[in-house]
Amino acid sequence: MALMPKLPRTVNFPVPAKPTRYEILEGLRITAPVAAGYIPLGLAYGVLVIQLGLPWWLAPALSLSAYSGSAELLVVTLAAQNTPLAVIAVTMLLVNFRLLFFAFSFPLHVIEGRFARLFSMYALVDEAYALTAARPNGWTKPRLLTMQVLFNLTWVVSALVGVFAGSLIPIQIEGLDFALTALFITLTLDAARTRRALPSVLLAGASFAVAMVVAPTQRLLVALLLFVACLAGRHVLHRRGILHSPESPASADGQGQATPEGGAQ
């Protein structure tokens, strides 16, 4: 019987990492179309700061310290109405509380270095999370940091340009303070596209209606607190099996079979 020739041992070499320059350019390519959406909102934010009679430095100061478009628009609107600082702080906490849950699935593990990781945590915004959720693979430290730096710079620069433009406008622009309301309406419509989101929309409306009756002067803060309490209570009922989602199989016909109206969206 002929002996089989001895085959050379195969060695699995690690796949070489792509150059940092390539990763940075790829991060710019992915991020640029989304970052462009920051420009009109940042301009409106900067102009709004001037139109409300607030100091110009408040726009970049908030952009660097808070770095949350919806929260910043909310803060300048409340500040112009002489809202107490404690109310502003609690409102910002409730508005930005969602970012805590984003961190659970954000690819922070690819970031090495204490300063870089702290910056990535600071620069975690909705758009950064959405991009990583849509592209769960392929994120590296240069690519991820490039994305977050571009988002941050676009927002800060747009706000500064808006401040400069607002200082050149001699007249008061009517309705510009509606930018905050328009932003939240857009976010609400974007989130409420399925039947599953309907209970949350109804809870939000009911919370605001109760707040208007109970505390009309602090309606926003009270409505947020009531809405958070309702969401927490609904979550507990879901966990205990008392309440089921309108689209969950367990709630259909009581037999675990989905009805035609209760199918997944």
Rank of each mutant, 00 (worst) to 15 (best):
I88D: 05
Q148D: 09
V95S: 01
P107A: 09
W57D: 09
V15L: 15
M1A: 13
A165V: 15
A79T: 14
L25Y: 07
G46H: 08
V201W: 14
V49L: 03
Y38I: 00
E23H: 06
A35I: 02
S63I: 04
F164I: 15
L52M: 12
A17Y: 01
C230G: 09
S248F: 02
V76R: 01
F13P: 00
P8V: 05
T181G: 10
A215S: 15
Y122D: 00
F97Q: 10
Q148G: 04
L78D: 05
L108Y: 07
R114Q: 08
V90M: 10
Y67E: 06
A252H: 14
L41T: 03
T146S: 12
M212K: 08
R195A: 12
R219F: 11
P142K: 08
G263D: 10
V214F: 03
S158Q: 01
M212I: 05
R98Y: 09
V49P: 04
W155F: 14
I24S: 01
T146E: 04
S105P: 00
A116K: 11
F104L: 15
E72R: 06
F227S: 15
V157P: 00
L168T: 13
M4V: 10
W57I: 12
M147P: 05
A250G: 12
C230R: 03
T10V: 13
V87D: 09
L62P: 00
P260G: 07
A209H: 05
R117V: 02
A252C: 15
G262N: 12
L203K: 03
S63P: 01
M92L: 13
L198C: 00
V157H: 00
Y45H: 14
